[in-house]
Amino acid sequence: MSDIEFSISDHIAHVRLNRPKALNSITPEMDNRLAEIWSQVSDDPDIWCAILSAEGEKAFCAGADISGGAEMKQRVALGGGLTGIGGPLVKLKKPLIAAVQGYCLGGGFEIAMCADIIVAADTAQFGLPETRVGIIGECGVVHRAIRQLPHHIAMALILTGERMKVAELAPYGLVNEVVPFADLQSAALAWAGKITASSPLAVQAAKEAALSRLSDPLEVALTTKFEAIEAYAASNDVKEGMTAFSEKRKPVWTAT
């Protein structure tokens, strides 16, 4: 059985980590496969959204599998490039939903933070154990944590290495929804359904515009013209959206 399961259904790409006995930690081979998958997700016009999940109840992902020692130096960026740790940063064009359960630690925590939407089981625990075990390096997870969480919450995670339960972090906006573990996959699918109900080209253009100017002053973002938005204005989906609205029906998107 593959360490990563991949399938496409109803315009949704399903990516599932499948090493539950190893807490779904990611090997170099898995990184390479994930890099291929993210490239396909970005380039395939039939894929409008992706869900990243993991097998088993115990863990979403404990980060990189460090059992390989020197082999680790040969890996692509963790998570197939999503994190940018150890290699080029992959900017996924399509919306990504992370379905998180159990332990979500270190690089696994960062992979989850790379998603646009996080749905968590009530069993989820998040942590940055790097300082506690003395392996801190060029660790991108600390930079994402300090940007996505309140300063003192992020610093507590970074400096102590202790885990926090999702119930403690949810009030700070880390996740979009907390559900029982049994409902995790259906909740992720429901979010994917909300996303795919919208124009896929509009969604992709909006994601690119929102994230590409995130570090710029508001004045710069407001005066920037975005190629994806400009291109969308001439698409068939714009016409379909207006026609469907006037006819009081649901639009039928074609991503063209």
Results as ranks from 00 to 15, higher is better:
232 Y>D: 01
186 S>T: 14
174 L>Y: 08
71 E>F: 06
33 R>T: 15
112 A>H: 01
144 R>P: 00
196 T>F: 14
100 V>T: 04
52 L>S: 06
103 Y>N: 00
58 K>V: 09
245 F>A: 10
90 V>Y: 04
100 V>W: 00
143 H>P: 01
191 W>C: 03
147 R>E: 07
227 E>C: 04
249 R>E: 08
118 I>R: 01
199 S>H: 08
13 A>H: 02
213 R>V: 09
32 N>E: 14
91 K>L: 10
225 K>H: 06
189 L>E: 09
231 A>D: 07
56 G>L: 12
183 D>L: 11
238 V>G: 01
150 P>L: 10
224 T>V: 05
139 C>R: 09
55 E>Y: 10
81 G>S: 04
229 I>V: 08
117 I>M: 12
11 H>W: 06
13 A>Y: 03
178 V>A: 13
215 S>A: 09
134 G>E: 13
75 R>E: 01
54 A>S: 14
115 A>P: 04
255 A>Y: 10
161 G>Y: 12
250 K>C: 13
60 F>V: 14
248 K>F: 12
72 M>T: 02
65 D>P: 03
36 E>D: 10
203 V>T: 06
189 L>I: 10
189 L>T: 08
152 H>N: 15
60 F>D: 02
156 A>P: 00
98 A>E: 03
24 N>T: 10
59 A>V: 09
88 P>A: 12
216 D>S: 14
22 A>G: 02
150 P>R: 09
142 V>S: 03
182 A>P: 03
67 S>I: 03
100 V>F: 00
60 F>I: 09
36 E>A: 09
69 G>N: 02
148 Q>C: 06
132 R>T: 05
54 A>I: 08
35 A>E: 04
169 L>K: 14
237 D>Q: 05
220 V>I: 14
185 Q>K: 07
166 V>C: 04
24 N>V: 05
100 V>E: 00
134 G>P: 07
131 T>L: 10
28 P>M: 15
153 I>T: 08
247 E>R: 05
235 S>G: 02
14 H>S: 04
53 S>I: 08
218 L>H: 06
99 A>G: 03
142 V>A: 04
